[in-house]
Amino acid sequence: MPSRSRVLLHTVLIAASLVMVAPFVWQLVTSLKSLSEATAVPPTLLPSGRWGNYGRVFDLLPFGAQFGNTVIVALARTAGQVLLCSMAAYAFARLRFPGRKVLFGLFLSVLMVPPQLFIIPQYQIMSALGWLNTLQALIVPGLFSAFGVFLLRQFFLGLPPELEEAARLDGAGPVRIYWSIMLPLARPGLLALAVLVLLWSWNDLFWPLVVNSDPDTMPLSAGLASLQGQFQTDYPVLMAGSLLASVPVIVVFIFLQRQFIQGIAQTGIKG
């Protein structure tokens, strides 16, 4: 490519990247300002380094507990979905049984329905079990996913059958084949599902808002949203809190970028 058009290309891309990144930079800059600096006109570009704003987040919210809740729920949902979805996906991809098509069709139909249709009855189940304001409420419905079955079934279908056949000739049953052959081979697919579930679980707001109103059992998303209502104007603290809540997933993303992007490019579903 001629160098002039290369310069033009990078100029356009750098300008666009600035637009994408500017909100994050401004968030960080504001989080280190005092309230009077944040509301100065014209705005100051360099903050005075008020790291205390981050401590204030912990005063306003049970931030440590909410962080723990978010992590526990995300890990439990991810582990549960990877296990349960891969089991069913293996059966749909490789085993023959009566009713396979009908069952798979039923699973797929769950994917077509907007999730708001599940909410009221799910809330009633949680309430009847006495699970409101508990971590089970956040975890249990999220252990099951039609999407995960669909994604992993596609993945299993793409694996070569030779290894399995060899194992079967050696007398291995379905459990052994699933556990010691299919799962290791499907590692990239399992990882793609895991990062997607982690992302959705971490960022989800609607369901936690519905079931957990007690600040100690909320995840970060709901906790942060509640801060917005009460402390509308203390922007430095709001920016510090929102940064603390979103950075862990951003870091995971940067390390597992390839899996994230593969998972999304393969399935096209974000959640």
Binding site: A16, S17, M20, V21, P23, F24, W26, Q27, T30, A38, T39, A40, V41, P43, L199, W202, N203, L205, L220, S221, L224, A225, Q228, Y235, L238, M239, S242, L243, A245, S246, V249, I250, F253, Q257, F260, I261, K270
Partner: peptide, 25 residues
């Protein structure tokens, strides 16, 4: 860089933009 907003918690995104959009500051 283009992908960062996709993985950022929507609650956090909304807060940051609310601040960017603030009428006075």
């Amino acid at each position: 860089l283009f992908f960062l907003p996709v993985v950022t918690m929507p609650v956090a995104v909304a807060m940051v933009w609310r601040w960017l959009y603030n009428g006075d500051y």
